[in-house]
Amino acid sequence: MARTFQTEFDQFWRQTCGKVRAYMFCASNSASDADDLAQECYLRAFRNWDRFDERGSRQAWLFAIARNTQTDWFRKRGRDARVLERSLVERASEASPPELDDAEALWRAIGRLTAEHREIVHLRFGADLSYDEIARTLNVPVGTVRSRLHRALKAIREQMEEVRNET
């Protein structure tokens, strides 16, 4: 019984660890913080493994834990959602050096998005979740996910155009 659980969890970890870590990295912009967050997330998942409702998606359940882990972690470090948002905006608003490459400019553009839009971008492009999985994770309809993502991408495009016009 214990061995089965261990194998099952190990397999689940292998399938999802890259996604979880990428999602954590998107939020923290730090490799070490992302590792800490991912570790904490899996620890919580391990403890609550039996509390998962089998009718839902295990991955969506994991990312719901990942979201909560992020929130708690930043709060514990004295960086609540607002502070985090402000720091991300400040970081993104820093004067762009002329040699800034396209990827870095885009990364900063993502940092300037609202928390809601940024999160959906992180879940879609960082964690590589489908619309359906994002909807389950955030507990919103799929249509909401689509519209939020569309608005987020539009905002990114507009900001990139601004950067291009400035340079």
């Binding site: 998107c26 396209d102 990827a103 990364w107 993502i110 971008v121 492009f125 991408l153 990139m160």
Partner: peptide
């Protein structure tokens, strides 16, 4: 935008 966003995040 979709392609470049994916690439930028993957690169990071």
């Amino acid at each position: 935008t979709c392609i470049r966003t994916r690439q930028a995040i993957a690169q990071k």
